[in-house]
Amino acid sequence: MTTSELRLAAHDLACLRGGRLVFEGLSFAVARGEALVLTGANGSGKSSLLRQIAGLLEIAHGTIALEGGDSERTIGEQVHYVGHLDALKPSMNVAETLRFWTEYLGGGRNEAAVAHALDAFALASLADLPVGYLSAGQRRRLSLARVLAVPRPLWLLDEPTVALDAANTARLLDLMNVHLVSGGLIVAATHLDLGLVPARMLRLGEEVAA
């Protein structure tokens, strides 16, 4: 994979949800080592935009391209998407869950990566606990952990700090900054000031609301 000049470019995007125009005429670009922070009121299309990038939502108009990425694979296969739903099964335990997603998302049977990701999100001591017993913040951390377990260049995070306490928010921000420094890209929707180093803001909703 040639990631030297990786760049996410969106041109003249529009999004339709249930016949309602959520946004239109949206263009932006994110280069390596850059974060794009999406802000805007409820319903302004932050989540929809993230899902469009991940290939989970139809693009009503315009284009999204991951320039310099692997042209043989869809954008969805080159990004991590952490949305509102945490994709966790109550009857599987923490380590099993992460092991499964690591293997499924192309990381192979990599115990070291799984252990590292659990450790980074302070979940190592909970490894054998069934997911059903986790608190909301712990569930959030577990679903975030897969972005570390399998290396993918672009992270799409939909309000990643929801349910996280101060210490874990700081932990997540550190990991995001490390990802950026090592040449990754992040598009995150949030209401908080994340304090990412090279962050550009994109405020959604104003032109449509007007």
Partner: peptide, 14 residues
């Protein structure tokens, strides 16, 4: 579908 796993399943190489 309900817990979001299907979204992720569609984002793998499979």
């Amino acid at each position: 579908f309900e817990d979001g796993s299907l979204d992720l399943l569609s984002m793998g190489a499979l």
